[in-house]
Structure formats: structure tokens, C-alpha cells
Design a binder for these strands. Structure first.
Length: 151
DNA sequence: GCCAACGTTGGC
DNA sequence: GCCAACGTTGGC
């Protein structure tokens, strides 16, 4: 069964247009255990809603897929990286990433205030003040968002 | 840029 | 194991 997810990214750093350009991106820099654990359960081909956080406005911007399952995030080993993790060793990594492949931009961007107004989404961490940057999406939630976005 | 909400760290 | 202090996320 294909998993469905929502992943947040700040468009000033890496947005849907960046993913469209590079096609495949390693989703590095996740430093939250819950988000990491979700990524570890992702399978190749799982579908991803690409969400723009810290944006004006924030909202769902496009569709992507998991291109490669979880593997150690190399930035954790890089002393010069903001994401350096002193506890991590190559034999025992702490953080993981997946590769994400661009599918398409949303024909219609769906802003957060509209997502908040959709009753199907009331249980989503996204609209419940959670900062969780990687979260699962149920079939009903997926259907509602995909419809609103024209995806 | 502000700051509330939340997650993590570390002293005890 | 508690919880205060601190750091980060992300909407506004």
C-alpha cells in the first residue's frame, strides 16, 4: 500500500520550484525524532504533499514521491554543517533522510487558512499547532487536499 | 521581527 | 524521573 505524507519546507530555503529544477533532493536536516521515525517507514513511491512553511502564505504547493528509502543524513557527520550531530558515528547514525522526487506543482496553491477551514483536516497535526515537519496523511485527508489543489 | 507553542537538554 | 531553562518552529 502506498503511504501518504506531508513534508514541510521553507520556500526561501528550498521550495517546490527548487524541487522542480533539481528533480530529486535528499531531504536532509530533519532533527526531530518523530519526523525521523516517519521517514524511516517510508517506501519508494510513497506520495508526498509538499508544504511551504514560513511562507507568505504558507500552504500546499505540490506533489512529490519518495525516490529512495531512509539512509543516514550525511550532514550529521559534517563538522562545518549546521546539522552536525556530535553523537553520530557512521556505524551508529542518529539522523536519516529520504530522497524526494518532484511530481508536479499544484495547479492551485492551497493556503493554510483554507486547509484550516476543511473539516476533513481537523485532526491533522498541520492544523493543530504542531511543528511536526513530516507527518502521515490519511486517505480522507489526502482526497480533500488533492481536490482543493487540483492535483 | 515577534513570540507562543513545543521539543530537547541537563542539573538535581 | 522531574522540570526549568533553553532552542527551534512557524504563523502572523
Amino acid at each position: 500500500m502506498t503511504g501518504r505524507w506531508l513534508m514541510k519546507s521553507e520556500p526561501d530555503v528550498f521550495g517546490i520550484d527548487d524541487l522542480a529544477r533539481v528533480k530529486v533532493e535528499g531531504w536532509n536536516g530533519v532533527r526531530n525524532y518523530q519526523a525521523r521515525n516517519f521517514m524511516k517507514t517510508m517506501k519508494t513511491g510513497d506520495e508526498i504533499l509538499f508544504y511551504h512553511s514560513n511562507a507568505e502564505p504558507p500552504g500546499v504547493a505540490g506533489l512529490a514521491r519518495v525516490a529512495k528509502t531512509a539512509y543516514p543524513d550525511p550532514t550529521q557527520f559534517d563538522r562545518k554543517s549546521d546539522y552536525f550531530e556530535p553523537r553520530a558515528t557512521t556505524a551508529d547514525p542518529v539522523w536519516y533522510q529520504v530522497d524526494v522526487r518532484f511530481v508536479r506543482k499544484a495547479p492551485r496553491f492551497v493556503p493554510l487558512d483554507e486547509l484550516r477551514g476543511m473539516p476533513e483536516l481537523a485532526a491533522m497535526p498541520l492544523v493543530n499547532k504542531s511543528r511536526l515537519s513530516v507527518q502521515p496523511v490519511t486517505d480522507a485527508q489526502w482526497a480533500a487536499i488533492v481536490k482543493a489543489a487540483g492535483l
